[in-house]
């Protein structure tokens, strides 16, 4: 690479970084603005909006609600996803390809379509809108990601590990619990964080299947209708920081675990 092309490449890189981070930076800055209206110039700064967010029971309960939905749906998708991944990585059987295709389908269907279908389906079965319906919908949507992440890891599990466990006296279940599951740990952590973030971020499904209690994105949407205020920026910033920390932690942990210690 010549010096010239290197210069051009690095400029493109930095332009891209700016393109991504300027909106985020603006959003974060506005959360500290001591005024009700979003926009420049910022004459004085304040932490008032943040204090307001943490003191706002409506926001805090929506946050908690989102967490409950995220964690529950993640646990369900982990259970189902690992099970399907193990099934698909095992010996061949009739209809394996079909199951694989069906498993991945929820990840490919546009959110709005899946949300409407779930709404109709729930109605058909007499499932009322609310927590259960949202968790169910999020869990189904997340299963394909778990299957993909876990399958990738499972594919690298040497068959001899399981043979060794069996050889030393483990029945298939014990071998799975004591050798396969620990081996899958990085994938399980990565997969859960991924599921959590998707669930936490989801608006469309939660909106269509929700009852009266709003998740955080639904609450933000409701607040937006009464006009933009720095309070929303403060909420968004808190969410941004939390999710970024979670992501970084997951990345570091899985990398460490994949090395084996």
């Amino acid at each position: 690479m010549t010096r010239h092309t290197r210069l051009v490449m690095s400029m493109i890189y930095w332009a891209f970084v700016l393109y991504i981070f300027v909106p985020l930076a603006l959003m974060v800055m506005m959360g500290f603005k001591d005024s009700k209206f979003i926009g420049f110039p910022i004459r004085s700064w304040t932490l008032e909006w943040y204090i307001g967010v943490f003191g706002n029971s409506e926001v805090m309960s929506a946050f908690g609600y989102s967490m409950v939905i995220g964690i529950t749906s993640t646990l369900i998708s982990l259970f189902v996803g690992v099970w399907i991944a193990v099934l698909l990585n095992g010996r061949g059987f009739v209809g394996k390809g079909v199951i694989y295709g069906l498993t991945l389908l929820p990840a490919l269907i546009p959110g709005i379509i899946s949300a409407i279908s779930f709404r109709i389906y729930a109605q058909l079965w007499g499932v009322p809108p609310g927590t259960g319906a949202i968790i169910w919908c999020h869990a189904v949507h997340n299963v394909p990601f778990v299957v993909l992440i876990v399958s990738a890891r499972l594919g690298t599990l040497p068959k001899s590990y399981l043979d060794a466990a069996r050889d030393l006296g483990a029945d298939p279940l014990i071998a799975f619990m004591r050798v396969t599951l620990p081996y899958l740990r990085p994938a399980l952590i990565g997969g859960s964080v991924f599921c959590m973030l998707i669930s936490f971020d989801d608006f469309v499904r939660s909106f269509f299947l929700g009852g009266y209690q709003p998740t955080l994105p639904v609450l933000i949407f409701a607040k937006l209708r009464s006009g933009m205020s720095p309070e929303i920026n403060a909420i968004a910033t808190v969410v941004l920081v939390l999710t970024a920390l979670l992501g970084i932690w997951a990345e570091r942990t899985t990398r460490r675990l994949k090395k084996g210690y």
Partner: peptide, 18 residues
């Protein structure tokens, strides 16, 4: 295998990494 009094040293050792 788990019910035999026979144990094996594997070609790749197959030590449990965790």
């Amino acid at each position: 295998p788990n019910r035999r009094k026979v144990n094996m040293v594997f070609q790749d050792y197959a030590l449990f990494p965790h």
